[in-house]
Design a binder for these strands. Structure first.
Lengths: 240, 240
DNA sequence: AAGTGGTCTAGACCACTTC
DNA sequence: AAGTGGTCTAGACCACTTC
Protein backbone atom coordinates (compact mmCIF):
# COMPACT_ATOMS: atom_id res chain seq x y z
CA UNK A 1 0.00 0.00 0.00
CA UNK A 2 1.22 3.48 -0.86
CA UNK A 3 2.17 5.81 1.95
CA UNK A 4 -0.57 8.34 1.28
CA UNK A 5 -3.17 5.55 1.11
CA UNK A 6 -2.02 4.12 4.42
CA UNK A 7 -2.21 7.55 6.06
CA UNK A 8 -5.67 8.20 4.60
CA UNK A 9 -6.87 4.81 5.90
CA UNK A 10 -5.45 5.49 9.34
CA UNK A 11 -7.20 8.85 9.56
CA UNK A 12 -10.41 7.38 8.17
CA UNK A 13 -10.43 4.82 10.96
CA UNK A 14 -9.88 7.54 13.54
CA UNK A 15 -12.87 9.42 12.14
CA UNK A 16 -15.07 6.35 11.98
CA UNK A 17 -14.30 5.16 15.50
CA UNK A 18 -14.72 8.65 16.93
CA UNK A 19 -11.09 9.30 17.89
CA UNK A 20 -11.56 12.34 15.68
CA UNK A 21 -15.04 13.71 16.34
CA UNK A 22 -17.42 15.73 14.20
CA UNK A 23 -16.18 19.23 13.42
CA UNK A 24 -12.91 18.47 15.20
CA UNK A 25 -9.76 19.93 13.71
CA UNK A 26 -7.17 17.47 12.48
CA UNK A 27 -3.50 17.99 13.34
CA UNK A 28 -1.87 20.53 11.02
CA UNK A 29 -0.16 19.40 7.86
CA UNK A 30 3.25 19.95 9.44
CA UNK A 31 2.28 17.99 12.56
CA UNK A 32 1.06 15.13 10.41
CA UNK A 33 4.34 15.24 8.47
CA UNK A 34 6.23 14.67 11.71
CA UNK A 35 3.74 12.15 13.08
CA UNK A 36 3.93 9.94 10.00
CA UNK A 37 7.50 10.81 9.04
CA UNK A 38 6.58 11.95 5.53
CA UNK A 39 6.68 15.15 3.52
CA UNK A 40 3.90 17.65 2.95
CA UNK A 41 2.84 16.39 -0.43
CA UNK A 42 2.21 12.93 0.95
CA UNK A 43 -0.04 14.31 3.68
CA UNK A 44 -1.69 16.44 1.02
CA UNK A 45 -2.52 13.37 -1.09
CA UNK A 46 -3.99 11.60 1.91
CA UNK A 47 -6.14 14.68 2.58
CA UNK A 48 -7.32 14.79 -1.02
CA UNK A 49 -8.47 11.21 -0.67
CA UNK A 50 -10.41 12.01 2.50
CA UNK A 51 -11.94 15.11 0.91
CA UNK A 52 -13.00 13.15 -2.12
CA UNK A 53 -14.76 10.68 0.15
CA UNK A 54 -16.50 13.51 1.95
CA UNK A 55 -14.92 12.93 5.37
CA UNK A 56 -13.04 16.19 5.85
CA UNK A 57 -12.84 19.72 4.48
CA UNK A 58 -9.94 22.16 4.57
CA UNK A 59 -9.81 25.91 4.94
CA UNK A 60 -6.59 27.71 4.17
CA UNK A 61 -5.47 29.61 7.21
CA UNK A 62 -7.69 27.59 9.57
CA UNK A 63 -7.03 23.90 9.25
CA UNK A 64 -8.68 20.67 8.18
CA UNK A 65 -11.87 19.59 9.90
CA UNK A 66 -13.94 16.43 10.20
CA UNK A 67 -17.25 16.99 8.45
CA UNK A 68 -20.48 16.69 10.33
CA UNK A 69 -21.53 13.65 8.38
CA UNK A 70 -21.76 10.81 10.87
CA UNK A 71 -25.34 10.16 9.80
CA UNK A 72 -24.07 9.20 6.39
CA UNK A 73 -22.32 6.20 7.84
CA UNK A 74 -25.76 4.86 8.65
CA UNK A 75 -27.07 5.71 5.20
CA UNK A 76 -24.54 4.34 2.75
CA UNK A 77 -26.76 5.44 -0.12
CA UNK A 78 -25.72 9.02 0.20
CA UNK A 79 -21.97 9.22 0.19
CA UNK A 80 -20.87 11.11 -2.89
CA UNK A 81 -19.20 14.45 -3.15
CA UNK A 82 -19.50 17.37 -5.47
CA UNK A 83 -17.26 20.38 -5.41
CA UNK A 84 -18.03 23.58 -7.25
CA UNK A 85 -21.81 23.47 -7.14
CA UNK A 86 -23.68 25.12 -9.92
CA UNK A 87 -27.36 25.75 -9.52
CA UNK A 88 -30.07 25.31 -12.09
CA UNK A 89 -29.88 28.99 -13.01
CA UNK A 90 -26.15 28.95 -13.80
CA UNK A 91 -26.45 25.73 -15.80
CA UNK A 92 -29.20 27.08 -18.02
CA UNK A 93 -27.82 30.60 -18.31
CA UNK A 94 -24.81 29.10 -20.07
CA UNK A 95 -27.14 27.57 -22.64
CA UNK A 96 -28.96 30.87 -23.15
CA UNK A 97 -32.27 29.55 -21.79
CA UNK A 98 -34.93 31.74 -20.22
CA UNK A 99 -35.11 30.53 -16.62
CA UNK A 100 -38.04 31.03 -14.27
CA UNK A 101 -39.64 29.44 -11.23
CA UNK A 102 -43.06 28.75 -9.78
CA UNK A 103 -43.18 28.62 -5.98
CA UNK A 104 -45.80 26.35 -4.41
CA UNK A 105 -44.81 26.55 -0.78
CA UNK A 106 -42.49 28.67 1.35
CA UNK A 107 -42.49 28.54 5.13
CA UNK A 108 -40.38 28.29 8.27
CA UNK A 109 -40.98 24.96 9.99
CA UNK A 110 -39.41 22.35 12.25
CA UNK A 111 -38.17 19.78 9.74
CA UNK A 112 -38.80 16.03 9.78
CA UNK A 113 -36.48 14.17 12.13
CA UNK A 114 -34.35 12.60 9.40
CA UNK A 115 -33.80 15.99 7.76
CA UNK A 116 -32.92 17.56 11.11
CA UNK A 117 -30.37 14.83 11.69
CA UNK A 118 -28.76 15.24 8.27
CA UNK A 119 -28.52 18.99 8.89
CA UNK A 120 -27.10 18.49 12.37
CA UNK A 121 -30.06 20.27 13.99
CA UNK A 122 -31.90 19.55 17.22
CA UNK A 123 -35.64 18.86 17.36
CA UNK A 124 -36.25 22.52 18.23
CA UNK A 125 -34.33 24.12 15.39
CA UNK A 126 -36.16 25.78 12.52
CA UNK A 127 -35.55 25.50 8.79
CA UNK A 128 -36.98 27.14 5.73
CA UNK A 129 -38.94 24.77 3.57
CA UNK A 130 -39.85 25.45 -0.02
CA UNK A 131 -41.25 23.63 -3.00
CA UNK A 132 -40.77 25.17 -6.42
CA UNK A 133 -40.59 24.15 -10.04
CA UNK A 134 -37.72 25.24 -12.25
CA UNK A 135 -38.73 26.26 -15.73
CA UNK A 136 -36.53 26.72 -18.81
CA UNK A 137 -38.04 28.26 -21.94
CA UNK A 138 -41.57 27.86 -20.51
CA UNK A 139 -41.16 24.10 -19.99
CA UNK A 140 -40.99 22.81 -16.38
CA UNK A 141 -37.81 20.78 -15.96
CA UNK A 142 -37.75 19.96 -12.27
CA UNK A 143 -39.52 20.24 -8.94
CA UNK A 144 -37.50 20.94 -5.83
CA UNK A 145 -38.26 20.24 -2.17
CA UNK A 146 -35.68 22.04 -0.06
CA UNK A 147 -34.91 22.56 3.63
CA UNK A 148 -32.36 25.26 4.50
CA UNK A 149 -30.99 26.02 7.95
CA UNK A 150 -32.65 29.16 9.34
CA UNK A 151 -29.75 29.95 11.66
CA UNK A 152 -27.25 30.14 8.79
CA UNK A 153 -29.45 32.16 6.40
CA UNK A 154 -31.42 34.74 8.36
CA UNK A 155 -32.77 36.74 5.43
CA UNK A 156 -34.22 34.37 2.84
CA UNK A 157 -37.35 35.87 1.27
CA UNK A 158 -39.93 34.64 -1.18
CA UNK A 159 -38.56 36.73 -4.03
CA UNK A 160 -35.18 34.94 -3.78
CA UNK A 161 -36.96 31.73 -4.77
CA UNK A 162 -37.91 33.30 -8.08
CA UNK A 163 -34.24 34.01 -8.75
CA UNK A 164 -31.09 32.07 -7.91
CA UNK A 165 -30.93 31.01 -4.26
CA UNK A 166 -27.27 29.98 -4.61
CA UNK A 167 -26.35 33.40 -5.99
CA UNK A 168 -28.12 34.96 -3.01
CA UNK A 169 -26.28 32.69 -0.56
CA UNK A 170 -22.90 33.39 -2.12
CA UNK A 171 -23.11 37.06 -2.99
CA UNK A 172 -25.49 38.56 -0.45
CA UNK A 173 -25.15 36.29 2.58
CA UNK A 174 -21.46 35.71 1.83
CA UNK A 175 -21.57 31.95 2.43
CA UNK A 176 -18.85 29.80 0.94
CA UNK A 177 -20.40 26.68 -0.48
CA UNK A 178 -18.32 23.55 -0.19
CA UNK A 179 -19.26 20.05 -1.21
CA UNK A 180 -22.46 18.07 -1.69
CA UNK A 181 -23.38 14.54 -0.76
CA UNK A 182 -25.67 13.07 -3.38
CA UNK A 183 -27.74 10.07 -4.33
CA UNK A 184 -29.64 9.51 -7.57
CA UNK A 185 -32.80 7.51 -8.22
CA UNK A 186 -35.53 7.10 -10.81
CA UNK A 187 -39.00 7.62 -9.31
CA UNK A 188 -42.55 7.98 -10.65
CA UNK A 189 -44.28 11.37 -10.70
CA UNK A 190 -47.15 11.78 -8.23
CA UNK A 191 -50.39 13.27 -9.52
CA UNK A 192 -49.53 16.62 -8.00
CA UNK A 193 -46.05 16.55 -9.50
CA UNK A 194 -47.44 15.56 -12.89
CA UNK A 195 -49.70 18.64 -12.88
CA UNK A 196 -46.94 20.97 -11.75
CA UNK A 197 -44.41 19.54 -14.21
CA UNK A 198 -46.84 19.23 -17.14
CA UNK A 199 -46.28 15.52 -17.51
CA UNK A 200 -48.22 12.31 -16.73
CA UNK A 201 -48.67 10.70 -13.29
CA UNK A 202 -46.14 7.88 -13.02
CA UNK A 203 -43.82 9.46 -15.58
CA UNK A 204 -40.13 8.74 -14.81
CA UNK A 205 -38.39 11.48 -12.83
CA UNK A 206 -34.65 11.59 -12.12
CA UNK A 207 -34.35 12.38 -8.41
CA UNK A 208 -31.23 13.96 -6.94
CA UNK A 209 -31.18 13.85 -3.17
CA UNK A 210 -28.47 16.00 -1.68
CA UNK A 211 -27.05 17.52 1.46
CA UNK A 212 -25.11 20.72 0.81
CA UNK A 213 -22.19 21.74 3.02
CA UNK A 214 -20.48 25.05 3.54
CA UNK A 215 -16.73 24.97 3.09
CA UNK A 216 -16.54 24.88 6.88
CA UNK A 217 -18.16 21.44 6.74
CA UNK A 218 -21.45 22.60 8.27
CA UNK A 219 -24.53 21.35 6.37
CA UNK A 220 -26.78 24.17 5.16
CA UNK A 221 -29.41 22.46 3.03
CA UNK A 222 -31.20 19.21 2.34
CA UNK A 223 -33.05 18.89 -0.92
CA UNK A 224 -34.71 16.51 -3.32
CA UNK A 225 -34.86 17.65 -6.92
CA UNK A 226 -37.01 15.59 -9.27
CA UNK A 227 -36.22 16.19 -12.94
CA UNK A 228 -38.56 15.19 -15.75
CA UNK A 229 -36.84 12.21 -17.36
CA UNK A 230 -37.62 13.21 -20.92
CA UNK A 231 -36.28 16.75 -20.44
CA UNK A 232 -33.13 16.24 -18.44
CA UNK A 233 -29.89 14.28 -18.75
CA UNK A 234 -27.21 14.27 -16.10
CA UNK A 235 -23.77 14.49 -17.61
CA UNK A 236 -20.20 14.82 -16.33
CA UNK A 237 -20.62 11.92 -13.97
CA UNK A 238 -17.97 10.34 -11.82
CA UNK A 239 -18.78 7.34 -9.70
CA UNK A 240 -16.41 7.03 -6.78
CA UNK B 1 -4.51 31.41 -12.92
CA UNK B 2 -2.39 28.71 -11.33
CA UNK B 3 0.48 27.25 -13.31
CA UNK B 4 -0.96 23.76 -13.54
CA UNK B 5 -4.32 25.16 -14.65
CA UNK B 6 -2.67 27.25 -17.36
CA UNK B 7 -0.74 24.23 -18.62
CA UNK B 8 -3.86 22.06 -18.60
CA UNK B 9 -5.76 24.72 -20.55
CA UNK B 10 -2.95 25.04 -23.07
CA UNK B 11 -2.86 21.29 -23.67
CA UNK B 12 -6.65 21.12 -23.80
CA UNK B 13 -6.65 23.69 -26.59
CA UNK B 14 -4.03 21.71 -28.50
CA UNK B 15 -6.22 18.62 -28.23
CA UNK B 16 -9.39 20.45 -29.22
CA UNK B 17 -7.87 22.17 -32.23
CA UNK B 18 -6.17 18.99 -33.41
CA UNK B 19 -2.55 20.02 -32.78
CA UNK B 20 -2.52 16.87 -30.68
CA UNK B 21 -4.53 14.24 -32.55
CA UNK B 22 -6.46 11.21 -31.33
CA UNK B 23 -4.26 8.51 -29.82
CA UNK B 24 -1.22 10.75 -30.23
CA UNK B 25 1.39 10.62 -27.49
CA UNK B 26 1.97 13.82 -25.56
CA UNK B 27 5.52 14.98 -24.84
CA UNK B 28 7.00 13.16 -21.84
CA UNK B 29 6.68 14.60 -18.38
CA UNK B 30 10.31 15.68 -18.43
CA UNK B 31 9.92 17.33 -21.83
CA UNK B 32 6.85 19.19 -20.60
CA UNK B 33 8.81 20.29 -17.51
CA UNK B 34 11.38 21.91 -19.78
CA UNK B 35 8.83 23.26 -22.26
CA UNK B 36 6.84 25.06 -19.56
CA UNK B 37 9.75 25.69 -17.18
CA UNK B 38 8.08 23.92 -14.25
CA UNK B 39 8.73 20.88 -12.08
CA UNK B 40 7.28 17.40 -12.44
CA UNK B 41 4.57 17.78 -9.88
CA UNK B 42 3.12 20.77 -11.71
CA UNK B 43 2.96 18.83 -14.98
CA UNK B 44 1.44 15.98 -13.02
CA UNK B 45 -1.36 18.18 -11.68
CA UNK B 46 -2.11 19.44 -15.18
CA UNK B 47 -2.30 15.83 -16.36
CA UNK B 48 -4.63 14.89 -13.53
CA UNK B 49 -6.95 17.66 -14.63
CA UNK B 50 -6.94 16.42 -18.23
CA UNK B 51 -7.50 12.82 -17.11
CA UNK B 52 -10.40 13.87 -14.92
CA UNK B 53 -11.98 15.57 -17.91
CA UNK B 54 -11.48 12.44 -19.99
CA UNK B 55 -9.09 13.96 -22.54
CA UNK B 56 -5.97 11.86 -21.95
CA UNK B 57 -4.85 8.65 -20.28
CA UNK B 58 -1.42 7.69 -19.00
CA UNK B 59 0.44 4.39 -18.95
CA UNK B 60 3.53 4.05 -16.81
CA UNK B 61 6.44 3.11 -18.98
CA UNK B 62 4.70 4.21 -22.18
CA UNK B 63 3.53 7.77 -21.95
CA UNK B 64 0.40 9.89 -21.93
CA UNK B 65 -1.99 9.67 -24.87
CA UNK B 66 -4.89 11.67 -26.26
CA UNK B 67 -8.05 9.60 -25.93
CA UNK B 68 -10.11 8.70 -28.92
CA UNK B 69 -13.04 10.80 -27.81
CA UNK B 70 -13.54 13.43 -30.51
CA UNK B 71 -17.12 12.30 -30.96
CA UNK B 72 -17.90 13.40 -27.42
CA UNK B 73 -17.26 16.98 -28.36
CA UNK B 74 -20.33 16.73 -30.56
CA UNK B 75 -22.40 15.11 -27.81
CA UNK B 76 -21.93 17.24 -24.70
CA UNK B 77 -24.36 15.04 -22.82
CA UNK B 78 -21.83 12.29 -22.43
CA UNK B 79 -18.68 13.77 -21.01
CA UNK B 80 -18.12 12.28 -17.59
CA UNK B 81 -15.38 10.01 -16.43
CA UNK B 82 -15.14 7.06 -14.12
CA UNK B 83 -11.94 5.40 -13.10
CA UNK B 84 -11.79 2.03 -11.38
CA UNK B 85 -14.85 0.44 -12.92
CA UNK B 86 -16.65 -2.15 -10.90
CA UNK B 87 -19.18 -4.29 -12.60
CA UNK B 88 -22.53 -5.36 -11.23
CA UNK B 89 -21.06 -8.63 -9.98
CA UNK B 90 -18.34 -7.00 -7.88
CA UNK B 91 -20.78 -4.45 -6.44
CA UNK B 92 -23.21 -7.10 -5.28
CA UNK B 93 -20.61 -9.61 -4.19
CA UNK B 94 -19.52 -7.09 -1.55
CA UNK B 95 -23.04 -7.03 -0.18
CA UNK B 96 -23.20 -10.84 -0.10
CA UNK B 97 -26.00 -11.03 -2.68
CA UNK B 98 -26.59 -14.03 -4.94
CA UNK B 99 -25.95 -12.69 -8.43
CA UNK B 100 -27.23 -14.21 -11.66
CA UNK B 101 -28.13 -13.25 -15.22
CA UNK B 102 -30.67 -14.03 -17.88
CA UNK B 103 -29.42 -13.60 -21.46
CA UNK B 104 -32.01 -12.62 -24.09
CA UNK B 105 -29.77 -11.99 -27.04
CA UNK B 106 -26.15 -12.65 -27.99
CA UNK B 107 -24.81 -12.16 -31.51
CA UNK B 108 -22.04 -10.67 -33.63
CA UNK B 109 -23.40 -7.81 -35.74
CA UNK B 110 -22.45 -4.58 -37.48
CA UNK B 111 -23.55 -1.99 -34.93
CA UNK B 112 -25.74 1.08 -35.54
CA UNK B 113 -23.82 4.00 -37.01
CA UNK B 114 -23.82 6.08 -33.82
CA UNK B 115 -22.45 3.16 -31.79
CA UNK B 116 -19.76 2.49 -34.42
CA UNK B 117 -18.72 6.12 -34.24
CA UNK B 118 -18.51 6.14 -30.45
CA UNK B 119 -16.38 2.98 -30.60
CA UNK B 120 -14.14 4.41 -33.33
CA UNK B 121 -15.15 1.65 -35.74
CA UNK B 122 -15.77 1.76 -39.49
CA UNK B 123 -19.07 0.70 -41.08
CA UNK B 124 -17.57 -2.73 -41.80
CA UNK B 125 -16.34 -3.57 -38.31
CA UNK B 126 -18.17 -6.14 -36.21
CA UNK B 127 -19.19 -5.98 -32.55
CA UNK B 128 -20.73 -8.38 -30.12
CA UNK B 129 -24.21 -7.37 -29.07
CA UNK B 130 -25.95 -8.74 -26.03
CA UNK B 131 -29.01 -8.04 -23.95
CA UNK B 132 -29.20 -9.51 -20.47
CA UNK B 133 -30.85 -8.87 -17.15
CA UNK B 134 -28.86 -8.75 -13.93
CA UNK B 135 -30.49 -10.43 -10.99
CA UNK B 136 -29.65 -10.16 -7.29
CA UNK B 137 -31.33 -12.50 -4.81
CA UNK B 138 -33.84 -13.59 -7.49
CA UNK B 139 -35.03 -10.03 -8.16
CA UNK B 140 -34.14 -8.47 -11.55
CA UNK B 141 -32.32 -5.18 -10.93
CA UNK B 142 -31.28 -4.07 -14.39
CA UNK B 143 -31.36 -4.80 -18.11
CA UNK B 144 -28.23 -4.22 -20.18
CA UNK B 145 -27.83 -3.59 -23.91
CA UNK B 146 -24.13 -3.82 -24.74
CA UNK B 147 -21.90 -3.58 -27.82
CA UNK B 148 -18.29 -4.74 -27.43
CA UNK B 149 -15.57 -4.46 -30.04
CA UNK B 150 -14.96 -7.87 -31.66
CA UNK B 151 -11.39 -7.04 -32.65
CA UNK B 152 -10.35 -6.37 -29.04
CA UNK B 153 -12.11 -9.37 -27.50
CA UNK B 154 -11.80 -12.38 -29.79
CA UNK B 155 -13.10 -15.04 -27.45
CA UNK B 156 -16.31 -13.84 -25.78
CA UNK B 157 -18.75 -16.74 -25.37
CA UNK B 158 -22.31 -17.04 -24.17
CA UNK B 159 -21.31 -18.57 -20.85
CA UNK B 160 -19.29 -15.44 -19.97
CA UNK B 161 -22.53 -13.47 -20.00
CA UNK B 162 -23.83 -15.59 -17.14
CA UNK B 163 -20.79 -14.63 -15.10
CA UNK B 164 -18.79 -11.42 -14.87
CA UNK B 165 -17.78 -10.07 -18.28
CA UNK B 166 -15.43 -7.55 -16.70
CA UNK B 167 -13.64 -10.28 -14.79
CA UNK B 168 -13.24 -12.20 -18.06
CA UNK B 169 -11.87 -9.12 -19.83
CA UNK B 170 -9.39 -8.38 -17.08
CA UNK B 171 -8.22 -11.81 -16.02
CA UNK B 172 -8.56 -13.96 -19.12
CA UNK B 173 -8.19 -11.51 -22.00
CA UNK B 174 -5.73 -9.42 -19.99
CA UNK B 175 -7.29 -6.08 -20.91
CA UNK B 176 -6.62 -3.10 -18.69
CA UNK B 177 -9.82 -1.14 -18.25
CA UNK B 178 -9.42 2.60 -17.99
CA UNK B 179 -12.16 5.19 -17.71
CA UNK B 180 -15.82 5.49 -18.66
CA UNK B 181 -17.80 8.31 -20.18
CA UNK B 182 -21.30 8.32 -18.77
CA UNK B 183 -24.69 9.98 -18.93
CA UNK B 184 -27.70 9.33 -16.69
CA UNK B 185 -31.41 9.60 -17.47
CA UNK B 186 -34.77 8.48 -16.12
CA UNK B 187 -36.78 6.59 -18.74
CA UNK B 188 -40.01 4.54 -18.79
CA UNK B 189 -39.87 0.75 -19.09
CA UNK B 190 -41.10 -0.67 -22.39
CA UNK B 191 -43.53 -3.58 -22.27
CA UNK B 192 -40.75 -6.02 -23.05
CA UNK B 193 -38.52 -4.52 -20.35
CA UNK B 194 -41.36 -4.61 -17.84
CA UNK B 195 -41.78 -8.34 -18.41
CA UNK B 196 -38.07 -9.07 -18.21
CA UNK B 197 -37.59 -6.89 -15.12
CA UNK B 198 -40.79 -7.99 -13.36
CA UNK B 199 -42.16 -4.49 -13.16
CA UNK B 200 -44.89 -2.43 -14.89
CA UNK B 201 -44.71 -0.89 -18.37
CA UNK B 202 -43.83 2.78 -17.97
CA UNK B 203 -42.18 2.19 -14.58
CA UNK B 204 -39.24 4.57 -13.98
CA UNK B 205 -35.85 3.12 -14.91
CA UNK B 206 -32.50 4.78 -14.16
CA UNK B 207 -30.53 4.56 -17.41
CA UNK B 208 -26.73 4.71 -17.45
CA UNK B 209 -25.35 5.18 -20.93
CA UNK B 210 -21.62 4.62 -21.10
CA UNK B 211 -18.62 4.22 -23.33
CA UNK B 212 -15.84 2.17 -21.72
CA UNK B 213 -12.18 2.79 -22.57
CA UNK B 214 -9.11 0.66 -22.11
CA UNK B 215 -6.28 2.37 -20.29
CA UNK B 216 -4.74 2.90 -23.72
CA UNK B 217 -7.66 5.22 -24.50
CA UNK B 218 -9.24 2.86 -27.05
CA UNK B 219 -13.00 2.42 -26.58
CA UNK B 220 -14.01 -1.21 -26.06
CA UNK B 221 -17.72 -1.07 -25.23
CA UNK B 222 -20.88 0.95 -25.55
CA UNK B 223 -23.74 0.05 -23.26
CA UNK B 224 -27.04 1.19 -21.87
CA UNK B 225 -27.99 -0.21 -18.49
CA UNK B 226 -31.54 0.41 -17.31
CA UNK B 227 -32.00 -0.10 -13.57
CA UNK B 228 -35.39 -0.53 -11.93
CA UNK B 229 -35.94 2.75 -10.09
CA UNK B 230 -37.45 1.17 -6.99
CA UNK B 231 -34.56 -1.32 -6.61
CA UNK B 232 -31.50 0.74 -7.32
CA UNK B 233 -29.90 3.93 -6.02
CA UNK B 234 -26.76 5.42 -7.46
CA UNK B 235 -24.45 6.68 -4.78
CA UNK B 236 -20.95 8.12 -4.58
CA UNK B 237 -21.71 10.71 -7.21
CA UNK B 238 -19.47 13.52 -8.34
CA UNK B 239 -20.69 16.01 -10.89
CA UNK B 240 -17.79 17.63 -12.70
C1' DA C 1 19.59 -0.82 -21.19
C1' DA C 2 16.97 3.08 -21.91
C1' DG C 3 12.86 5.47 -21.48
C1' DT C 4 8.33 6.17 -19.38
C1' DG C 5 5.08 7.89 -15.67
C1' DG C 6 4.23 7.51 -10.26
C1' DT C 7 5.57 8.42 -5.54
C1' DC C 8 8.04 10.86 -2.44
C1' DT C 9 11.57 14.12 -0.01
C1' DA C 10 12.78 18.53 2.09
C1' DG C 11 12.04 22.30 1.69
C1' DA C 12 10.61 27.71 -0.28
C1' DC C 13 7.15 30.80 -0.91
C1' DC C 14 2.47 32.30 -0.94
C1' DA C 15 -2.68 33.30 0.36
C1' DC C 16 -5.49 33.38 3.93
C1' DT C 17 -7.22 33.39 8.91
C1' DT C 18 -6.80 34.52 13.60
C1' DC C 19 -7.12 28.31 15.94
C1' DA D 1 2.71 38.53 14.00
C1' DA D 2 1.95 33.82 14.02
C1' DG D 3 -0.23 29.93 12.27
C1' DT D 4 -2.77 27.56 8.65
C1' DG D 5 -3.23 24.97 4.12
C1' DG D 6 -1.94 25.45 -1.19
C1' DT D 7 1.41 25.65 -4.89
C1' DC D 8 5.66 24.75 -6.52
C1' DT D 9 10.90 23.55 -7.02
C1' DA D 10 14.61 20.28 -8.08
C1' DG D 11 15.44 16.52 -7.65
C1' DA D 12 15.80 10.86 -5.94
C1' DC D 13 14.03 6.55 -6.45
C1' DC D 14 10.81 3.19 -8.13
C1' DA D 15 7.55 0.25 -11.27
C1' DC D 16 6.75 -0.64 -15.65
C1' DT D 17 7.31 -0.88 -20.89
C1' DT D 18 9.98 -1.21 -24.91
C1' DC D 19 7.79 4.46 -27.66
Amino acid sequence: MLKYEAIAEDLRKQIEDGTLGQNERLPTVVELCHAYGVSKITIRRAMERLKKDGLVSSRRGSGTFVKRSASFEENPLVTGLNEHAEGFTAQHAKAGDAVSSEVYDFAVITPPAEVAELLGLSAEDFTYYHCRTRIANDLPIAIEYTYMSLALIPGLKLHHLYESVYRYLREEVGLKLGSFHRAIRAVPATEEEATRLKTEPGAPLLELEQVGYLDSGIPFEYSRTRNVGSRYVLNNITLA
